[in-house]
Amino acid sequence: MLDAIFFYAFALLAVAGAVLTVTRRNAVHSAIWLIVSLLGVAGLFLLAQAEFLFAVQIVLYVGGVMLLFLMVIMLVNLDRAKQERQFSQQWPAALALAAVAGFGLTVVFRKAGAVLPPMASPAEQGNTQWLSEVMFRQYLLPFELASVVLLVAMVGAVLMARKKAGT
């Protein structure tokens, strides 16, 4: 019961934060609502007993990534940005799509009932230990491969931001 209450509270936080992130005109407000949304997701991780993910979510996303966001926002000219035409005003289409997707999901999960197999519970050891074991044994290859993906992303960012040839 208590779990359910917390779940809905965090879920509401996450969804409401996300909606406000895309609807606020002021970029700083958007960023702050994004923090709220990310905190809601962090709460959901905690409810699922994934305390490591919870910590990572707070430290990396709410802390690190958001700080970078706010730094970048500080660098752009907010007053001018506010006057630019915004492309986020697609209410009817967005609502219709959300309604269709929501309806579909509700039907599917109603009909399916409880067929989702219970999670392999890491009862005797902590979630963090379990995660590390899975990551470095079963998922070692994709874990290493992810470093290459990040390298490519970084190279791409540098390449796009670089000044004209030779500099």
Partner: peptide, 13 residues
């Protein structure tokens, strides 16, 4: 999924 992202990211650039 990671392989797909590696390919796709390189292509975006």
């Amino acid at each position: 999924f990671v392989g797909l992202e590696l390919m796709a990211l390189s292509f975006y650039i």
